[in-house]
C-alpha cells in the first residue's frame, strides 16, 4: 500500500493513498482523466502513458523491451515516459508523482 499522485494536463493533482496495483489500474479505478487503459494492461494500446517525475526515475526503473518498443513509436514520449500498466506501485514508491500525458 502506497500513495501516488497523478498530475493531469490542466494541473489538477489527484492523490490516491493506500493504493495498489499498476498505475493504470489505480488511475482507471479512480477516474483519473486521460488514462484509459484500453487493452487492460498488456502493452497493446499506449492509452496509459505517464511521465515519471525526474526524482523518481531511478526507483521506478526502466521499461522492458515490449514496453520500450511501444513508447519509441508514440508521439510525445521522452526518457521519463512509461506505460502506466507496466509500473506496479510497490511500497518503495510511496509518494510517487507522475504526469499524465494526454491521449
Amino acid at each position: 500500500m502506497a500513495k501516488v499522485t497523478f498530475v493531469t494536463t490542466d494541473g489538477t493533482e489527484v492523490s490516491i493513498s493506500d493504493a495498489n496495483g499498476s498505475l493504470m489500474e489505480i488511475a482507471t479505478a479512480n477516474g483519473v482523466d486521460e488514462i484509459e487503459g484500453a487493452c487492460g494492461g498488456v502493452c497493446a494500446c499506449c492509452t496509459c502513458h505517464v511521465k515519471i517525475r525526474p526524482e523518481w526515475l531511478g526507483k521506478v526503473g526502466k521499461a522492458e523491451e515490449a514496453e520500450q518498443d511501444m513508447l519509441d513509436e508514440e508521439d510525445g514520449t521522452d526518457e521519463r515516459s512509461r506505460l502506466g500498466c507496466q509500473v506496479e506501485l510497490t511500497d518503495d514508491l510511496d509518494g510517487l508523482v507522475v504526469d499524465v500525458v494526454p491521449l
Partner: peptide, 24 residues
Amino acid sequence: DRKPNPHIAFGKGVHNCPGAAHAR
C-alpha cells in the same frame, strides 16, 4: 494469460481502429 501482448490486430498509428473499444 499472455502479457505483455503488444499485438497490432487493431492497427497502429493514426489510423488505429476506433472500433477497438466496442470490439473489446
